[in-house]
Design a binder for these strands. Structure first.
Lengths: 160, 160
DNA sequence: ATTTCTGCAAACGATTTGCACAGGG
DNA sequence: CCCTGTGCAAATCGTTTGCAGAAAT
């Protein structure tokens, strides 16, 4: 976890009068020790690797705090559970493409899209606060060659 | 409900060997009798207005069929429950702006955005199948004048 | 000492499912 | 008749919450 992130979080907690506990520390440390997406439960596992007394409830109570700090992003990609994305600071405007074939999530950024979204919102009389674009798509390579290097998946015969 | 939609659904059910029942009829009739978004539970209420024996289970079992037919769109706007949008046929590429102040959902379309999304997906080696853009935003009018004329109005905006 | 935090377990709410019966073809 | 469709109620699953004790300030 970067020192800058650690400091920002520390400041945020202090500004809200929130206390420093070993459980929160462990959750925070775990939350920013990767650049991959994770679920609340996966974060629980990671945090328990640092501090074994962390409970699921505390993870669920801490996540909204981190999201509120602006350093962690909450994603709902429509899979029945939320994902958390610590990659938010470095890439604040990234979008997500979900492969229908292998379920992998790919991040991408595009300045034009970002501008266009802001433009649309303003035109309607709003100031955008949070945007999420989700594209579900099929892998071309899998369809054309039968194999996808990204996933190692092989296409079923006859699949379109 | 438009006759064209009714016919398309009828054909779809027949092509899948699905039977015609009074409950399904009522659900289908209800599903396409409005152009507003609704939840599964709201659809249950509407369908019961037509055929009182409709159960929640049947609604939940019928919804995926309608979505599969391509005439009804499933939305997950990150509110913990799914929304269904019968407006899909007329406006296949619309996006959603959710007002943080009044929670109203506004639909809008933009050709450039549509093109850009397709372009991004193809550049990454994918063929897009389903796209969903969600913008959460604050109402400028409410912020500036303290009142929003839209609040209390129809949620389906005429924005283009 | 005061107040926030915590773990536990129960509660929650949308959705799914097993079952035995109803009803469409 | 056969087999799909149905209602009911119980099960699921991620997430939230009430409570009493633990810990931070």
């Amino acid at each position: 976890m970067e020192e800058a992130v650690r400091n920002q979080i520390r400041e945020f907690l202090a500004s809200k009068g929130l206390r420093k506990t070993s459980q929160r520390d462990a959750i925070i440390e775990a939350a920013f020790s990767t650049d991959r997406h994770y679920t609340a439960d996966e974060l629980l596992d990671m945090a328990r690797g640092i501090e074994s007394t962390v409970s699921r409830a505390t993870v669920y109570r801490t996540l909204p705090i981190l999201v509120g700090s602006g350093l962690l992003r909450e994603l709902d990609l429509g899979q029945g559970r939320k994902l958390y994305d610590p990659n938010f600071v470095d890439h604040p405007h990234h979008n997500h493409l979900i492969c229908i074939d292998c379920q992998q999530i790919f991040e991408f950024e595009d300045l034009n899209m970002e501008l266009l979204e802001n433009c649309m919102a303003r035109r309607m009389g709003f100031t955008p606060a949070n945007k999420q674009l989700r594209i579900e798509a099929r892998c071309d390579e899998l369809r054309l060659s039968g194999v996808c290097r990204r996933s190692g998946l092989e296409a079923l015969a006859g699949a379109v």
